[in-house]
Design a protein around this nucleic acid. Structure first.
Lengths: 344, 344
DNA sequence: CCCCGCAAATGAACCGGTTCATTGACTCCC
DNA sequence: GGGAGTCAATGAACCGGTTCATTTGCGGGG
């Protein structure tokens, strides 16, 4: 069927109005559940719509209204297994409120974040939830402050004016570190991600607090930051375990990096538990079902997704709420067999 | 700032035209890289845009053009870790082509699939890639055939008119089953997902082919279908292993169900490898790093995502291509320590 | 010098809804 | 009976781009 023919065939409010013998304004009011329509006309219009197979053109509605019923989610990389849960729950909440989710990857680069914000504006997106590669980045902050729609930060907290949903990574890291120190470990290797971002900064804080509480000094040579991929985790672990005086414990304080570390340990023939104590920064089937099972920090990403969507919707509704609300989901340490007293 | 004030402040083509001293048509032609604009005017218009901070309104463009530069992806559940890879790669290809990805979950229900197709039409979405809960569902097929935009099926193949990207699950299942039969296993338990959908059907075909080639009859009492969640996998495994004559091998022929099975085996104190041979239907860190490592079927989901997006874009471009093109990515069996000769 | 042909530029009409000032009908009350 | 008040319904104007029939300008040929 030629596109043109199809095009001219589509049923419009005009056609519905003619069929029902009413004005276009009335059809529009029926469409939008406006209260000032008599039951009789409403029914006539609805019959006409059903009869003609009418479907509103959302692009026309968006153009007129200046909003799109779209909510964008931009994160650094959606190939983080547990993050899918966040998105899944957020989408469910948004769809329930008759919004559609728009998804984009920032690849953790400021210029992409800025370009996406601009694209979202041009699309008249109604709200945005996103991660940031660097909360201090001047141009990103400017783009955020100029954004006409509400923006909610995902696991970021440095921009006071914006709403945010975070996990209590500090607490998790503190628990994990205290646990290891309590088992007598003093040479604890730590892998963290991007220290410009909240989660890693926050974990480092928790780590330091635990050391301070124990009256012990951390060894900076055992810290590896900017570990953002499994391959980097592999290399970092390999290099740490090759030190003259290797660590007795490994704290993988980044999301979804456990696999890379375990691969390195296996390659080097080092046994988890006996050879080295391991704590995973995020829980997973792998951590739970490994032999031995791996002590891990856990938090509820599904709840984060739901809260993020809910808070953003509230903000979009324009309710008079104080700016920069923050919600923090707690973290817990699940102690399993991979962490053992240090051998003397 | 009041929305109304902001609203009236936005810069429009009209304003750019006035500033540059040209007609609105010219501004539009510059925006769309139309060739019949002299370099001088183009530059003047571009300067005016930069000066005024002009941003096109995509909703207006969409309304006029009847298309939105949106591509929708609707899958049954995005909380399938490996699927994130598909989406990630598809999004990258689409963004490269200046399309934005719209994401929705069908929760594997036909009525949701139909509702989403309708919502995509109303939004003038330019293309759709999706899974289907049941390719034979009458109403879904009708909704698909009435869709004005191209639809590409993800790992589904029963609708001849539609393009599709599939994995060769039959091959994977055949290899896995032959491998187990070759090790002497005759009591092989099998978990599959929804047999109304292509992947499970296809795996069952491969399974039967392998049995036929070996001249052995499968035991239907060892088959569990409709295993769609980890919890169901747990229960199915537990029930299979409680049989009077329990299986010697377990073929987890569904995506991402390995965790549930392993949990059940662990709870029952059955050792993978010695106690039972296990094959995973999809590869993962868990399969690779388990002790013993678990034999698994692997395929390239990233490539599937790239191909899906590329094929859909070609179709959207309206190129004269035969309808219903199919692309199949190969599967391979990665043999690891979890599959051993049957104990006699 | 004039006319033709071509290319560049113009701006009104259009896309398909929503909004709101206006009209029309009806009720209520004095 | 008539005027005020209420409420439903009307439809032209509008949202912000794009398109295309028309105009303008310019070079070249006769």
């Amino acid at each position: 069927m030629p596109a043109q023919a199809r095009r001219s065939q589509t049923v419009k409010v005009r056609d519905v109005a003619r069929e029902a013998g009413v004005a276009v304004g009335t059809v529009s009011r029926v469409l939008n559940d406006h209260p000032t329509v008599t039951r009789e006309l409403r029914e006539r219009v609805e019959r006409a719509m059903a009869h003609l197979g009418y479907e509103v053109d959302v692009t026309a509605q968006s153009m007129r209204a200046g909003r799109s019923r779209l909510v964008a989610c931009a994160i650094r990389d959606f190939d983080i297994p547990r993050f899918a849960l966040f998105i899944k729950e957020a989408e469910a909440v948004l769809r329930e409120a008759r919004y559609t989710l728009l998804l984009a990857s920032t690849t953790n680069r400021p210029e992409v974040e800025i370009a996406l914000l601009s694209a979202f504006r041009r699309r008249r997106v109604d709200g945005v939830m996103m991660t940031l590669s660097d909360e201090q980045h001047r141009d990103v902050r400017e783009a955020l402050s100029e954004a006409p729609m509400p923006v909610l930060l995902i696991d970021r907290n440095r921009i006071e004016a914006l709403d945010r949903v975070t996990a209590d990574h500090r607490q998790g890291a503190r628990l994990a570190t205290s646990h290891l120190l309590g088992l007598g470990h003093r040479r604890i290797a730590v892998l963290v991600g991007d220290t410009k971002a909240f989660p890693s900064r926050s974990r480092l804080e928790g780590l330091r607090e635990a050391y301070a509480a124990a009256g012990v000094m951390p060894d900076p040579r055992l810290l590896r930051d900017n570990v953002l991929s499994s391959e980097e985790a592999y290399r970092a672990t390999a290099s740490l375990m090759s030190l003259a005086d290797p660590p007795t414990a490994l704290f993988v304080a980044a999301m979804d990096m456990l696999g890379g570390c375990l691969r390195a340990l296996r390659t080097m023939g080092i046994a988890v538990g006996d050879g080295i104590s391991v704590v995973a920064g995020s829980d997973s089937d792998l951590a739970e079902l490994h032999t031995p099972p791996i002590t891990a920090i856990a938090w509820d990403l599904a709840a984060m997704g739901r809260h993020a969507a809910t808070m953003l919707l509230e903000r979009m509704r324009g309710d008079e709420i104080e700016r920069g609300r923050g919600l923090t989901v707690p973290t817990e340490l699940i102690i399993r067999g991979s962490t053992r007293p240090v051998a003397n």
